[in-house]
Design a binder for these strands. Structure first.
Length: 554
RNA sequence: GGGCCCGUAGCAUAGUCUGGAUAGUGCGGUUGGCUUCGGACCAAUUGACCGGGGUUCAAAUCCUCGCGGGCUCACCA
């Protein structure tokens, strides 16, 4: 459709001496494209309504334009719908799973996301960042980038010391499990006990020191074992979320280099010692002070991130580095990027930070410290049970298939609710709302797809054909066409919500068509089946970019 | 207090970057539709741009001053 817009623009430009652009009217009954005539009024010293009427007479409609109308100061163009239908549906059917792909440059992009810390909970807030990162990775490779997905996990530090202290002292009889809920509960217990008795922190500090020095072999092996349990538990979650990583980075692996870099920066006079700590004074850049090393010389998150960035640039040779991280760390990343610039990394300017806003509970922030949170694993089970109930209501089904479908529905539901809105906006998690399967939800999308597949199954063999579309059909066809524009917007904004909203609109348009147009047994059967097939392809592609997999029946 | 972000019906949101016609959608409420392909659906109805200035032929959109909320500002990540 875009090429017709371009043709129209150049045609009109020839008529008018000046630059113009065509808009899409707010209502399709006004036409497919519109030219607002206000801007010419001053120049031509004539009223916009008159200009619109003049232009209507002047412009010779090309073959793909059905008619040109004026409506007040607007000149409206109606495209020939049969031409559109053929053009759009043909290209969907031809390109299939590649429909919507485009080439926005083939640079090497590393996208870091999820960043779950070992020995702690993986709650639904983590699901937001993980879904966002996964979707962005898919979108960027869909537009031609060479994407490397990475996870950066906090497997060391005070939270680990607390966990190990608590386990050794109070839970030693329990055998360590690869169970995320159990792991999270030990951490919560540690925080609780430490809050009750401040003296106990000394024991934790000692454990932290021993872990750091590595002198206690028994402690070290307990750390290694439980670290691995935690990572294995996360891996199960990632599998359920349809996410994978090409590379895992660990904080424990960049500590040493982080410290070295900090000392080098002092030598280069980029950093300095202040109040015993190693800092970079960024007041000149309006970024305050950034602390790299504590006054006792131990390394902080900041220095570790510098070391990690160095590795990304030098070892992995990435052109662009994307960080999908909690919004509360925005300041930290401004400081990091500025530091990389001061260190003269040429990629510094191409680093991009994607903030992920909080998922809050109605009464406040989720916390893995107090356990006041909703674990992914627990909530997913609830969704699966609910989905299974709904499926069983609709007929007999064997256990294996039931599990497959209810899992898919649960994940679609959770992911869609996380991706459907601007990542910059806080989500207040409302459980009743999250358990809803109607309206703008993941299950609605899967349902629309399953419904369409069901028609195609029933119809059996047919040959593709395209005829003059009716109103509902035109709306659906035009929405199919809008897909690639949404993809490029999502890619350049680094925001999958453009695609999430699109998926819903597409499904909605299909359901309206479904309600208005009978497919099987109608005179238009072959054309409508062709359209249904095209719809399935585009919805599937669109959901795939969100990291949501379709199911044939539900 | 400084910096950044957010504010659209009872609730949740799209549209804001790139100004244009009647501000789109979901939930909830009210009403209707399975002798048509899956009612996790469809149709109808109810109801909104935080406030004041400014720019413009035209402002939810741009500028500005406020108000309300969130995050953040040296040794957590």
């Amino acid at each position: 459709m875009e090429k017709y817009r371009k043709k129209l623009v150049s045609l009109i430009k020839k008529q008018i001496d000046g630059d113009i652009d065509l808009a899409v009217p707010p209502d399709s009954t006004f036409g497919d494209y519109a030219l607002a005539c206000f801007p010419f009024a001053k120049q031509l010293k004539k009223d916009p309504v008159g200009i619109a009427n003049d232009l209507k007479e002047k412009i010779k409609a090309p073959s793909f334009v059905e008619k040109i109308e004026t409506k007040g100061p607007y000149l409206n163009f109606f495209l020939d719908k049969s031409v559109l239908a053929k053009e759009i549906i043909d290209s969907v059917l031809k390109e299939k799973e590649k429909y919507g792909q485009q080439s926005l440059g083939s640079e090497k992009v590393m996208i870091e996301f999820s960043q779950a810390n070992t020995h702690k909970a993986f709650h639904i807030g983590h699901v937001r960042g993980t879904s966002l990162g996964e979707s962005l990775a898919r979108i960027l490779s869909f537009v031609g980038k060479d994407v490397l997905r990475v996870n950066y996990q906090g497997d060391t530090g005070m939270h680990v010391a607390k966990w190990i202290w608590c386990y050794q002292k109070y839970h030693a009889k329990e055998k360590p499990k690869k169970d995320e809920a159990w792991i999270a509960s030990i951490y919560v217990d540690a925080i609780k006990r430490l809050a009750e008795n401040e003296e106990l922190q000394k024991e934790v500090d000692e454990i932290n020191r021993l872990l750091d020095s590595g002198e206690d072999k028994k402690l070290l092996s307990l750390w290694k074992e439980t670290r691995q349990d935690s990572l294995d538990a996360f891996e199960n979650i990632y599998q359920e979320l349809n996410t994978s990583f090409d590379k895992y980075f660990f904080e424990s692996k960049v500590e040493k280099r982080g410290k070295e870099i900090s000392l080098e920066l002092v030598k280069k006079k980029i950093a300095e010692i202040s109040e015993g700590a190693t800092i970079i004074d960024m007041k000149a850049h309006n970024l305050g002070v950034w602390v790299l090393l504590r006054s006792d010389g131990t390394v902080l998150y900041s220095a570790k991130d510098v070391a990690l960035a160095e590795q990304k640039f030098e070892k992995y040779k990435v052109d662009t580095s994307i960080y999908v991280v909690g919004k509360e760390q925005e300041h930290h990343f401004s400081q990091l990027f500025k530091t990389l610039e001061l260190m003269k990394f040429k990629q510094a300017k191409k680093c991009r930070y994607v903030p992920v806003s909080l998922v809050k509970l109605p009464w406040g922030k989720m916390s893995s410290r107090t356990g006041d949170n909703i674990l992914f694993s627990t909530f997913k089970e609830e969704l699966v049970d609910y989905a299974a109930e709904e499926i069983k209501k609709r007929g007999e089904i064997d256990e294996k298939e039931l599990k497959r479908r209810s899992d898919a529905i649960a994940i679609a539901s959770l992911k869609y609710s996380m991706l459907r809105q601007d990542p910059n906006k806080v989500i207040v998690f409302d459980k009743t709302e999250a358990m809803r399967f109607e309206g703008e939800t993941g299950p609605y999308l899967l349902y629309s797809y399953a419904r369409a597949r069901s028609i195609l199954r029933k119809a059996g063999k047919f040959s593709h054909s395209i005829s003059a579309p009716s109103e509902k059909e035109v709306a659906l066809i035009k929405t199919l066409d809008a897909f690639s524009e949404r993809v490029s917007k999502a890619a350049s904004d680094l925001d999958p919500s453009a695609i999430a909203n699109y998926s819903f609109r597409l499904a909605q348009q299909f359901n309206e068509f479904y309600g208005a147009c009978k497919v099987i047994g109608s005179e238009e059967q072959d054309f409508r089946l062709t359209l249904v097939e095209a719809f399935c392809i585009v919805l599937k592609n669109s959901l795939h970019l969100l990291g949501i997999e379709t199911i044939e029946k539900m």
